[in-house]
Design a protein around this nucleic acid. Structure first.
Lengths: 369, 369
DNA sequence: CTGAAAGCGCTAACAG
DNA sequence: CTGTTAGCGCTTTCAG
């Protein structure tokens, strides 16, 4: 579409515009609609009244010029980026997609962009080395250790909105966080094993410095106590959330004659390792030894036997965290702790009820600790 | 850290600064380092010479003030956002992570952010409804149909840098694209089946409007011809990349007495469906009928029997596409077509060589068509 | 309901 | 090697 504009000046000024071909600014729109830029801005942001007729002209001008507001300028003037950031330590599991999808749902239709970062830093080392921060976002979602504590403290000191995910903030920081019911989930799983008739329940713990791991072990111990089962020390070892490590531990147990009728692995990956080891020793899962995990990883329903495990509402975690962050950004107060319930997914690896595969049950939310 | 600055004015002006607590600007840094903002800018961007001593003072000021440059302002002044966008139609498969990871590798250490978007639109309907575009990115990576052709044309008309992924751009548009060797991969797979002794090779095609599907079928047909095998029309049906549809087709074939010794499914999902159907009919895979797929989905190595399939270098696709986009943004020329080789992954479902599982072989790159 | 003026924080283009 | 002058495109006052 070719448009000709002839301005009635002393010298005939001829402006040829390939509409949509040029990067129109708010002033171009304003001129074309015969209003001031301010009115266009009001129209755009619903930040003040605009007469219906005026609005129509502005609308037409915007369409004609194929106008797109410039985020940078907007951010500068309004001191708002309309962008939130999500920092992930890594991206290697569908798990993160569920999380991201939740975040996207929460910001859908709100004129907010999502900036994503995983690990890595850059730039001059002295310039507070932040890929995502106050300079390009209005707030940050931090998953587990995506940000070190020092940086966290600095940003928090700047009053920068932050919501954590799957990580408890330093006690003195008052940063809202979204956690899942690790403790309760583990507790429920042990209870289920007990109901299935298991007494000697071994535990493959995760890394000691991992928050999820700590809560899961706590739930395990509590459940044992609640069911008046003694904790058998040698049957509680760390497998570091690692498949090979888990297999080694179990193989060692079996080789040294440890007796157990169930193994609760602190995550599905180590559960897979445990199953491998049990089977390699010529024993059956769940007939000789039951094995259960935690996480409900994608593969867990496909392995043999399908794994009984604990599932957390990942997508909802993302949604809730983003919602809290938006509140923070709006200046509203946010919930300091959002604790999401986990559910146990009963498949075949735990023995009993094997017909009832994939049945799940919800559990009430309670505070950890 | 508490800093006191006393300005020697007529009235004693006392400025109390909680360093790092305030959002320092380039001017603050400049003042503190007793230089102009311009010099700080030069220091920051290596865009001109700065004396060592001056640099030191600037450095100190930056650290003291916990300064972070404002992206928005930078974008506005420099007419550059230092951000690229990636548009995905959806995010539901690890596949996309491999892609994203590739992109991140390509922009690592280059002061460039990655903005992510999947589907959805927002805002006033007249304002060209683009979540990602010239207003917040310097260029766009568009995966398959993340962007409709109209928008694509508009952006291209604005000379906006775009690189496509897994999609051929409209013939008249000169948009660089990164594709994978669908045709050659399919050709190689059929060749492998022939080598395994199969003659009657059925084909489960994908959707006709899907570019990958079209090339894969072309490769299948070519290979048949090359090996002087007739195309058996009834044994070439569409399964729409759908597991249930695939199962239905195969069940129908079997019920109507069609004879075949192998089924080549245009993607792993339909291959799974085919395997289910063959097994449900009381036949064995691969002993009675071999089944192979395309994509090497995460699950394919875990199903029974482990699936022989074709794998594409997804991460590299992301890396290459991002690299092309960066060239475009720099004003350099980019390769219009990057065609990445696929490799066949031989597992158990194709029969023969079953001991040699997971062996792979590379194939030379050739242009499609 | 609309407009004018000022400035957000930064960098380009020139000076020196 | 360093500083000055102008904006970038938008929104915020504050006036009508």
């Amino acid at each position: 579409m070719l448009a000709l504009t002839v301005k009635a000046n002393t010298s005939l000024e001829l402006t040829v515009t390939y509409a949509g071909n040029t990067n129109a600014t708010i002033d171009d729109v304003a001129k074309r609609a015969h209003v001031s830029a301010m009115t266009v801005s009001r129209y755009l942001n619903d930040t003040g009244p605009v007469a219906a007729k005026t609005a129509q002209r502005i609308h037409a001008a915007i369409v004609d010029l194929n106008y797109i507001p410039h985020q940078g300028a907007r951010a500068l003037a309004a001191r708002k980026t309309n962008t939130i950031g999500l920092i992930l330590p890594e991206m290697n599991d569908i798990f993160f997609f569920q999380l991201i999808r939740g975040v996207q749902q929460a910001i859908a239709g709100q004129q907010i962009d999502l900036l994503l970062y995983s690990a890595a830093t850059r730039g001059k080392p002295d310039v507070l080395n932040l890929p995502l921060g106050p300079h390009n976002t209005d707030g940050l979602l931090v998953f587990t250790d995506g940000l070190d504590e020092t940086t966290l403290r600095r940003l928090h000191a700047k009053q920068f909105p932050i919501v954590m995910l799957y990580r408890t903030p330093p006690a003195d920081l008052e940063i809202p966080t979204v956690l899942i019911e690790n403790r309760q989930g583990a507790y429920d799983m042990v209870t289920h094993l007990v109901r299935c008739g298991h007494n000697r329940i071994a535990f493959l713990a995760g890394s000691a410095d991992n928050e999820d791991a700590v809560w899961r072990e706590a739930g395990y111990r509590e459940a044992l106590a609640a069911h008046e089962l003694a904790l058998i020390s040698p049957l509680c070892a760390s497998a570091d959330f690692d498949e090979a490590a888990a297999a080694n531990v179990v193989t060692h147990w079996l080789a040294t004659g440890q007796e157990m009728d169930a193994i609760f692995a602190a995550d599905d990956v180590s559960a897979h390792g445990a199953i491998r080891a049990v089977q390699a020793a010529g024993l059956g899962v769940p007939d000789d030894i039951a094995v259960v995990g935690f996480d409900d990883a994608l593969l867990s329903q496909y392995i043999d036997p399908p794994l009984t495990t604990v599932r957390a509402p990942t997508e909802e975690a993302g949604r809730r965290a983003a919602a809290q962050l938006l509140r923070l950004i709006e200046g509203d107060s946010a919930e300091l702790l959002t604790l999401l319930p986990t559910e146990i997914i009963i498949r075949q690896s735990c023995g009993w009820l094997s017909s009832n595969a994939d049945t799940s049950q919800n559990h009430p939310t309670t505070k950890p600790d």
